[in-house]
Computed example of a mutant assay.
Amino acid sequence: MDLATLMFVSYRAMDERVVRVIRDAGYDVTPAQARIAQRIADDGSRLTDLAQSAQVTKQTASLLVAALEREGIVERVPDPEDGRARLIRLTERGRAASVAAMEVVMGVEKEWAEHLGPELTRDLREALVRLREVTDPYA
């Protein structure tokens, strides 16, 4: 299996666990909605920035944000720097979902670290951070 597929398999395993826990906690979200929500900055994000970061069209990001808004996870508020623009930010419900998701992520990372051992875990993190430098234009 090539490296990208191996990374994707691990990513998907984590992604599925996070979404399952979030759904079990009463949040009706899809993996695509969760991926958009995780990119929202603490002080809010513009839709165009979310779309770019998630590498989806603005229309797709808009649909995902609208679904999150209906679920009470995000809200749109005026951008204090530009009265014509709106920011998308997490609601209290959304922040609670984010905390729950992060607990799952940390738990999975701990399982992986126990499986790989501290040295290989450190090397893997370092390698992925370095790889991100050449593959992620938004890093």
Rank of each mutant, 00 (worst) to 15 (best):
R17T: 01
R17Y: 01
L6H: 14
E81P: 07
R46T: 02
Y27R: 05
E75T: 15
A100D: 03
S53I: 05
D28W: 10
I22R: 01
R89E: 10
F8A: 07
M14I: 04
R86N: 14
E103I: 04
S62H: 05
Y27P: 02
K110Q: 05
R39M: 08
I36C: 03
G44N: 07
L90A: 01
E71Y: 01
L131Y: 13
P80V: 07
L128E: 13
G72E: 06
G26C: 14
T91K: 10
E81H: 15
D2C: 11
E71K: 00
E126T: 10
F8L: 12
T121L: 05
R132W: 06
Y11L: 10
T30E: 02
D2K: 14
V74W: 01
M7C: 14
V29H: 00
P78K: 04
D49A: 11
Q33C: 09
A13I: 02
A101F: 02
A85K: 12
D42R: 11
R93A: 04
R132C: 10
A41I: 07
R89F: 10
R35H: 08
I22G: 02
R35I: 05
R70K: 08
G44S: 06
Q55R: 13
L116F: 15
M14G: 00
V18I: 09
H115L: 12
V77E: 10
E75V: 15
A4K: 13
L50F: 02
T57V: 08
A96M: 05
A85Q: 13
V29D: 00
S45V: 02
T135A: 09
R93G: 03
Q33D: 11
L90N: 01
G83F: 09
R39T: 06
D136N: 15
W112P: 00
A113Y: 04
V134F: 12
V105L: 08
L87M: 10
R86F: 14
A113I: 06
A113P: 03
D42P: 04
M1F: 08
R23W: 09
L128C: 09
D79N: 14
A97N: 03
V56W: 00
V108P: 00
M7T: 12
L116P: 07
Y27K: 06
A54L: 12
Q38C: 09
E69H: 03
A32N: 13
L131W: 14
A113M: 09
D2V: 10
E119C: 06
L3T: 12
A67V: 11
G117R: 06
T121K: 05
G94Q: 06
R35N: 06
E69S: 02
A96N: 05
L64C: 10
A54P: 08
A113K: 11
G44R: 08
S10Y: 14
M7S: 15
D136V: 14
V74Y: 00
R130C: 11
A113R: 11
I22V: 15
G117L: 09
L3R: 15
T60A: 07
V56R: 00
L6G: 08
E111H: 02
P80D: 04
L3E: 11
D79W: 12
I40P: 00
S53H: 03
R35F: 04
G26E: 13
R84G: 12
V129T: 06
T121D: 03
R89I: 05
Q52E: 08
E71N: 03
I88M: 01
G72I: 09
E75S: 14
L128D: 09
D136M: 11
D2F: 11
D42S: 10
E109C: 11
P118W: 15
R46M: 04
A97K: 02
A34R: 01
A139Y: 12
P118R: 15
R12H: 04
